[in-house]
Amino acid sequence: MTDLKERAVPIDTTGDPAPPRFVLPGWITSTVKHAALILFALVMLYPVIWMVVSSLRPNNEIFRSPGLVLDSLQVSNYSTGWNALAEPFGHYMLNSALVVLGCIVGNLVSCSMAAYAFARLEFSGKKWWFAIMLMTIMLPIHVLIVPQYIIFSNLGWVNTFLPLIVPKLLATDAFFVFLMVQFIRGLPRELDEAARIDGAGHPRIFLQVILPLMLPALATTTIFTFIWTWNDFFSQLIYLTDPQMYTVPVALRSFVDATVATSWGSMFAMSVVSLLPIFLAFLVGQRYLIKGIATTGIK
């Protein structure tokens, strides 16, 4: 705080005193501000809203209608798009759901265990291991993907969901370990002490005291894992080359390349379908998302 006094508070007031300014009444500035913000929000979201509307238009109209008014409701894009690939789109949704589920379970179990050790236990070299863990948060997957691919292809795991799920079981999403460490540090240690006096060992303290108290952190982890895995394209593109195993992003991309510019309506329709789970997760879990990135700060 002493530093602050030196650096932030001495405000430069050596210039001439400011001339008296004409000040607009508060309600006018606030109305202008709100109007500008609403307009900006509309511009930001317009493309997405337009895509939803366009998915309900006949193909030839999509390229003629920049507006949002629908003359007629064309649901057929959805049925065409749903059945445009080798399997109905639901098949790819199910594949994605399986991968997402595996990743969520993996992250919840492995990251919470690692976080408990970093937050509550003392052990040799803790500082170094913790530093390594923090650094792996920033490690790009592209650096690891070649040797990982070699390992997984030797195990015969290409075209299975294992290369996507197993790393999560091994706490490689260090971001969540960090998020949970932060959360556990905020829990009162008296609770652990009380349990220890009652004769509980670390497994019991972890399972019966800490885990139930860290539900908000687990919820944040769940929702981020859901959204990131659902959107993840790079690793799914690399590991899933058999159309039977395609997840939503890979299927959608093969759809784009197959149809070129002929059926934007059905492509938009399936794009909307693919974004729907993200949007629902956003509605349900907004609180956790905002808190999660506000406290630890990663997209």
Partner: peptide
């Protein structure tokens, strides 16, 4: 303003 951050990395938005 936050919603585009969640959608932005998806294939669907790239299609759009």
């Amino acid at each position: 303003f936050y919603l585009p951050s969640l959608l932005g990395s998806s294939v669907a938005i790239a299609v759009l």
